Amino acid sequence: MGECLQATAIETKLRELMRISGSLEPALATRLEEIWRWIEQMKPGKLMQKKLLMGFLLEVIQDAEVWLALKPLTDAERESFLHQIPPPVRYWYEYLFPRWFTEQDNKFYIWKQKLRSGEFSQDDAEVIDVIAQNIKSRQGSVVQRYVADFSMATDAIVSSPTGKPLCVQVTSMSDEFSEYKYEEWKRTLQAWEIERGIFVSYNPGKEAFVRELVNVVLHNSNHLADYKYLKFSF
């Protein structure tokens, strides 16, 4: 019963956020309504079985709440808050999240159906989690979002302790076959006007690749120039 109530609460929360954003940010209200209409016919028990879908919905609700809390602030108040949070988090709320709900997302209609039907698999999820833990252990910062993954070809937004946000895509596809995926990734980042990114193909059998990859990520957070999209293989 508790799980069903939780799923019901998600739909209630979406409607509440639609109402609040209707006056503060109509574009966000439109996106939330699109999401709500997408799930409104699903029974709560069925919704709870879709773990990735539930994760996406909870993320969107959280991000909408934070963004709507920032919206009424003065510029100085908003800047003060954003200055206190890690660079990737700031980049998400200040730039990428609002771009997602104000711009057309050509991939949304595709992945939301796959997410609902359970077709998505996160083959590299464990590796990405290990990479994220290693970056954090070196005082770096990491943000992961389903929207960034599915629509913006970004497994994680990262930064070193003193660097700038960097969008990272990781794949176990061999270097020989990853060139097309790299070009597609670069086009996606450019379409969203993401200024910097690195694409990494790795060999799961190579023991040291996580350490090497983390070194590359932290280095490029500090040094990669704007409008650069680099490819690495480990």
Results as ranks from 00 to 15, higher is better:
58 L>G: 11
232 F>K: 09
127 V>P: 00
189 L>S: 04
23 S>F: 00
17 L>N: 08
172 S>Q: 08
229 Y>T: 08
145 R>Y: 08
211 R>L: 03
66 V>D: 08
234 F>I: 10
173 M>Y: 05
45 G>F: 04
38 W>Y: 12
2 G>I: 12
28 L>T: 12
233 S>M: 02
221 S>Q: 07
112 K>T: 09
41 Q>P: 03
71 K>G: 02
162 T>C: 00
80 S>W: 09
124 D>C: 02
194 I>L: 07
220 N>V: 00
74 T>Q: 12
32 L>M: 10
7 A>S: 09
124 D>M: 01
62 Q>K: 11
207 E>C: 00
38 W>L: 11
176 E>N: 10
74 T>I: 09
26 P>K: 12
130 V>S: 00
109 Y>D: 15
213 L>A: 07
101 F>S: 07
99 R>N: 07
148 A>W: 07
100 W>V: 13
219 H>D: 14
172 S>T: 06
44 P>A: 02
190 Q>R: 14
170 V>L: 14
212 E>G: 04
44 P>G: 02
211 R>G: 06
204 P>C: 00
34 E>K: 11
17 L>M: 09
146 Y>F: 05
113 Q>I: 14
14 L>I: 03
137 S>W: 01
217 V>A: 11
216 V>A: 11
202 Y>S: 06
78 R>V: 04
27 A>F: 05
119 E>T: 03
33 E>A: 11
5 L>P: 05
77 E>F: 00
115 L>E: 04
135 I>V: 09
97 F>D: 12
93 Y>V: 01
119 E>G: 03
73 L>I: 02
221 S>Y: 02
181 K>Y: 06
194 I>E: 08
169 Q>I: 03
187 R>T: 13
146 Y>E: 07
71 K>H: 09
33 E>S: 14
229 Y>M: 03
26 P>Y: 09
9 A>E: 15
145 R>Q: 14
131 I>H: 02
81 F>K: 10
137 S>E: 07
121 S>M: 01
166 L>R: 13
223 H>I: 04
228 K>T: 11
26 P>M: 09
223 H>P: 03
65 E>P: 15
218 L>N: 07
133 Q>L: 10
156 A>W: 02
227 Y>R: 11
176 E>R: 13
184 E>N: 09
180 Y>M: 09
32 L>F: 05
57 L>Y: 03
201 S>H: 07
187 R>E: 15
113 Q>N: 15
208 A>L: 05
99 R>K: 11
141 S>Y: 13
190 Q>M: 11
4 C>T: 15
55 G>H: 05
